[in-house]
Design a protein around this nucleic acid. Structure first.
Lengths: 346, 346
DNA sequence: GGCGCGCGTGTGAGCGCTAACATCAGCGGG
DNA sequence: CCCGCTGATGTTAGCGCTCACACGCGCGCC
């Protein structure tokens, strides 16, 4: 723009050599200071640090990545539907990753077919991420990943049971089966002789696990376990099923696969004049924000998502260091509130 | 490991030169194919593509970034509290960014003081992101960013009014003030002569805007606007204030700064035997998942978060291309449901 | 029929950094 | 008293890519 001859055409950011020149050392010494190499004299280090500060120098991460062959980035695939669980896990994951010095790159996908999944993985591999976490706990996903040979460690952040996938895919998760068992046991312990389950989409591992846990607990207690209806995760589905249940002669206890479904149930029962918990007990899953303020406050199962994120990162960083897969299974805890009570006397 | 002499110690990924050798061309021709340079003979291109496929070649993004001085990454700062709005915006942003070929790096922070904010920005600048979006619509944030000279475009994804910050910070947002006006007008139009506002934390721009919109609409309609209570965004606060309002002689209409607060209100009113909407009308803000299934279904204001994300990316990419700041203001639309009705006859 | 031009391709340099090796003091032991 | 070793620093060679330029060939034009 300015035609001044000799003036630098583009004001390029300072490089290591600029710092070196200012500090009167070689660029290698600057590198050593930056990488905490032990054998640098304290006063030399001071001079270098002063020069860095003066120039506002910032190490060029691309150049570093080029030579070290480490990008310092991890990829996280998540679902673009903003459910409580996936989002919380994503945030937990990010915090944990940043804490151990990794960048977190995200890809939100709305369908989990092979093509989309492959696209997301390609996206990350093009970026040279060092590891990938997948918070998209659907069955398809496991298949898509298995079909696609990924040259970096992959951790699948899902429900309890490890995905029967390739060996390089590590699984961490919450013990949702035990959570579901606890929820069901809670209802049984209150005296219910039948627990109806409103099941989530069975192409989600979480939904499968919760269903399995419910089934196991029913069997163990010897209570009736009528074949559950499978719906999606939405409050709308809970509402629709709630109306159907109410009209068909309501059960005394329902275990919904998540809090949104439970919310829909509460609304449907309320509309039909069924009192919760006097007439029907309802248990949810997730303990999402506000569940304590539903009408009535919802008994539900809480998962520690931040811990889940930390475990996932731990597994990923571990795999990067060559550790054996950890098989982490975090506990899910029942949160009893006012939506459950003993069944009304016959 | 294997002591075989001559065997490559590390199986390094194929480089452009490997592809070139296999295809019988120079590395530059490979580069041209990869970058869609026009003057490459179709059959040459074919040969190169075949070689790429055979080797499973993937361009080294670090080397590319080093020479082009473009990382292809954008940073997104968001809040680590999983509120509906920020999360939805984040997902929308990511999708939009990936669509135009950018990677999205995330940093979730829990407090927005200068130090934390500076840490997040540093994190991104170390990574050489080309632009930064901030979904952390708190007043502090604007100050923190203003205080910190960031050498890349920054877009602040917040409420309507542009942050009175430095020029290089572009603002996109939803017209929350108009949304709040619409919510308030809705209540006034139903016949309410007083609209109580339950205000969100005033260090959030969104909360400020909603408060301002409510105030303006009340003034325009000439209805009473008692000084609002300021609380946080949680259902718990809504509940507490709801009880207080009920015990102090409930108003006929309440506009809550978000849906969680509204949820708490509904619960409190229900506990005190006040019927919604017959005795009290309640309006929320956000239209979060499940709001349609609250008891009763909540009248609220919807924001188009995916569109917000797209606008933010548009603004960022535009700024990168040297376009003037757009000042985007997306509409917020009232979603009337069953929680509002005319006031009971005196 | 020679000259120029543009298309397709190759060559060389260098982006900013780290790793390996080279260097050069100073110091203690045989 | 010199050798070798250690600590502090410098020197050199790439990492894999893109950019600027060089080059040769075939075509159309006067």
């Amino acid at each position: 723009m300015t035609g001044t001859p000799g003036a630098p055409a583009v004001r390029r950011p300072p490089a290591m050599s600029d710092v070196a020149a200012l500090a009167g050392v070689s660029h290698q010494t600057v590198s050593r200071v930056l990488n905490d190499h032990p054998s640098v004299r304290p006063e030399t280090r001071e001079r270098v640090l002063a020069a860095i500060a003066e120039l506002g120098y910032r190490r060029n991460s691309a150049a570093r990545a080029l030579v070290t062959r480490r990008s310092g980035a991890l990829g996280v695939v998540t679902t673009s539907s903003v459910h409580h669980g996936p989002t919380s896990t994503l945030i937990g994951l990010e915090s944990a990753a940043r804490e151990v010095g990794y960048y977190v790159s995200v890809a939100a996908i709305d369908t989990f077919d092979g093509g989309t999944m492959r696209g997301a993985l390609d996206h990350f591999l093009d970026q040279a991420v060092e590891g990938i976490a997948i918070i998209a706990p659907q069955v398809d996903v496991a298949e898509a990943v298995a079909a696609f040979d990924v040259p970096v460690p992959v951790v699948s952040v899902t429900s309890g049971e490890p995905v029967p996938g390739p060996a390089h895919v590590v699984a961490v998760g919450v013990d949702q089966r035990e959570g579901a068992r606890a929820a069901t046991r809670h209802l049984v312990d209150l005296g219910h002789r039948e627990v109806v389950h409103l099941a989530g989409p069975q192409d989600w591992f979480d939904a499968q696990e919760r269903l399995a846990g419910w089934r196991e607990a029913c069997a163990a207690a010897g209570v009736a376990a009528p074949e559950p209806v499978e719906v999606d995760w939405s409050a709308e589905s809970g509402y629709r099923e709630g109306l159907r249940l109410a009209d068909a002669g309501a059960p005394t206890a329902v275990f919904a696969a998540n809090d949104q479904l439970a919310l829909g149930l509460l609304r449907a029962f309320w509309e039909r004049g069924l009192r919760v918990p006097q007439d029907v007990s309802v248990v949810g899953f997730d303990d999402e924000a506000g569940a304590a303020y539903f009408v009535p406050p919802l008994t539900t199962v809480r998962q520690d998502f931040p811990a889940l994120g930390r475990s996932a990162i731990q597994a990923l960083v571990g795999a990067l260091a060559g550790d054996p897969p950890p098989r982490t299974l975090l506990p899910a805890t029942l949160v009893p509130r006012a939506s459950t009570a003993p069944p009304a006397a016959r």
